[in-house]
Amino acid sequence: MLLPSRKKKIGIMTETKTVMIVDDEPDVLLSVAQILEASNYRTIKAKDGYECIDKLGGEVPDVLLLDIMMPGLTSKEIIREIEKDRSLADIKIIFLTAVHSLEAEEEGLLASKQVIDFIEKPFTVRRMLDAIGKAIEI
């Protein structure tokens, strides 16, 4: 899926990029982290929305992998919080969900300018790495 292009950051992948993963399923959280860490990303794990907001206060990741259906704060509320904070404006958000993209769109989840991609569960390793790679490149 092609999304409208944004202001392009020119940079070479020299420093380690940080990806925050938010998912209420610990196994998913772990698996995704393992895949990314094996590809030299630094990961921050959050098991729900509150932990996500909390940890964003400590460190700002480059990419945020966000599960859509979680208990507690909804992904919509998380995005609203991020958009409020100017220091978080550069975070690229990728949805990670079992929900169909069109249904997500209907929910207004893709409205945010920071949301750049949408990975359907279950994903392939290749799809995951491609998405993160693209997010970093932008």
């Binding site: 399923e25 196994d27 998913v28 772990l30 698996s31 995704v32 393992q34 895949i35 094996a38 259906m69 079992a98 929900v99 569960k121 279950p122 994903f123 392939t124 390793v125 995951m128």
Partner: peptide
């Protein structure tokens, strides 16, 4: 169906990592 996909996700991820030699 939605609930079924969730456990499939880490299963697939792990197996793929094994297959890819991670």
């Amino acid at each position: 169906s939605h609930e079924l996909r969730t456990p499939l996700t880490p299963m697939k991820a792990q197996l793929q990592m094994l297959e890819e030699g991670y």
